[in-house]
Design a protein around this nucleic acid. Structure first.
Lengths: 151, 151
DNA sequence: TCAATAGATTAGAATTATTCTAACTAAAGA
DNA sequence: TCTTTAGTTAGAATAATTCTAATCTATTGA
């Protein structure tokens, strides 16, 4: 028997070759619950260049698509995904955390007027002259944020 | 008549050659109210290398010294000082803003375990390979945060 | 197959961080 | 001095996030 194509598609299809939301969750050791699958699909499917969201943004988006999730669960899930290495938490803006689906080595442009956040690949960027890492510590990460304003 | 030396000193004395809290406020066009003078003294006097505070930290410190200030006023004042160019707001930690009295060009080391924040002079640091500034915008600032963890 | 158990997950409630605004205060002008 | 105006303060309100009790799900054993 052939599986019929679903009539209505609520989520964008995963990129060919990329794991779908379900596989991502399984690989990360997280139970693929209804809520997580819905959020993972919104975050990862159909966004080949990555995306930046706040908890509130993702919550609104999920609601608009008809997913039944609470805001608290969105927060919990974003943190679980971050711990699992699926997301990176960004702090650019006092008062809200942003989460970035791009896990590659990169930095950020932040447009202060609009709040837009854009990735800059770290490939071409070199930071010279940083002091040696203090004794007993290691570098967890280096964040570079270029803040832009309208001229 | 000669003004007698005060018996009890509640605040550290300003550095010789550096303006005291009162003058700083006047220069910035802010009324030197009781609350502001107390907070400015805590922030600037006796800290030649600058300091990093959160609103809560400064509030507690002010209270311990017997200053009558509300937490809301501490927040208001920190923002007024920031707008006046006396402070710089830092966002390193999701959930709290830090304010830095060092207005020179510098970056930060952030010790994730302890929450300590340390300045790194920008003098010796060069960032190469950043993309050109997008049309219609200018660089407001570049923040570099090196996040360190215990090894 | 089904029930019992343990552990994971969810979301309402609680907490924390911050902002807003009505009341107060100080400065400036008459 | 009195009045007016603008700046300032802090209690109350809001926004962002976390906590935890209740719920759900997977697993195990009968």
């Amino acid at each position: 028997m052939v599986k019929p194509a679903s009539k209505t598609r609520k989520t964008a299809r995963a990129q060919p070759g990329k794991p779908g939301a379900l596989d991502r969750l399984r690989d990360a050791g997280l139970r693929p619950t209804r809520q997580r699958v819905a959020l993972a699909a919104l975050l990862f499917d159909g966004h080949p260049h990555g995306r930046h969201v706040t908890a509130e943004m993702l919550f609104d988006e999920a609601r608009r698509r008809g997913a039944r999730v609470s805001l608290a669960t969105v927060y919990n899930t974003l943190h679980q995904f971050t711990e699992a290495g699926l997301l990176r938490e960004l702090v650019v803006d006092p008062g809200t955390s942003h989460f970035d689906t791009n896990m590659g080595d990169h930095h950020h442009l932040y447009f202060e007027d609009s709040g837009e956040l854009r990735d800059v690949d770290a490939g071409g960027i070199a930071i010279k002259g940083l002091p040696p890492t203090p004794r007993g510590t290691e570098v967890a990460s280096i964040d570079v944020i270029v803040r832009l304003r309208r001229r």
